[in-house]
Amino acid sequence: MKIIQHQDKLISNFEAYQHVVSIQKKNDWGFTIPPPEKKRRGKFNPQLLDLEIITRDLSQYLVKVNQTNESTQESFVGLMLVLNTYEIEVIEKLMIMNLLPRSLVNLYAIIEECEDRFTQEQCEDILANVEKFYPAPQVDDEEAEGQEEMDVDEEEQVEEEEEEEDEEAFVQDDGLEHEGYVKKNQDKEIDEVDS
């Protein structure tokens, strides 16, 4: 293998997520997108295990950080056009797109010497535009409400628990046992029974 060019282009989280979603679609995996209704049989390829693991972990990370399946190209382009009107360096723009700062402190951390280069109004304008194109999700409130209602509604309780379990599995990453293997083993058993 020969590396021709170390850095051809920088890629934002949004583009990386689009790419990962396309891999999932191509292989009928449903880690962060709704899984296909009918799974094609015999598609599991043990050689592609590495690709599957990295796709799963990366897509789940990107979803947890800020990407959602709803974020569209329009909002991305829209925010980019606004940022282009300011004199911000490319990597600073990239970090704004990736991190979506919601407060002045976060913006100051991203942009070097922000106080000298921009007035406070300009900074607040950038933040307002981030908020406009990517409205902050109200997850925290909903979760808090959900926990209050837990005692009342049993179904909701189950859902909440499932969500929590998913998060734990991601953080601790114990769940390397993955469905492809299980599926293959099941197939084997069926074959044995048949024969």
Partner: peptide
């Protein structure tokens, strides 16, 4: 965080 790198490889 991510980037594209141009490589050539014998497959």
């Amino acid at each position: 965080m991510f980037q594209l790198s141009l490589i050539s490889d014998l497959i």
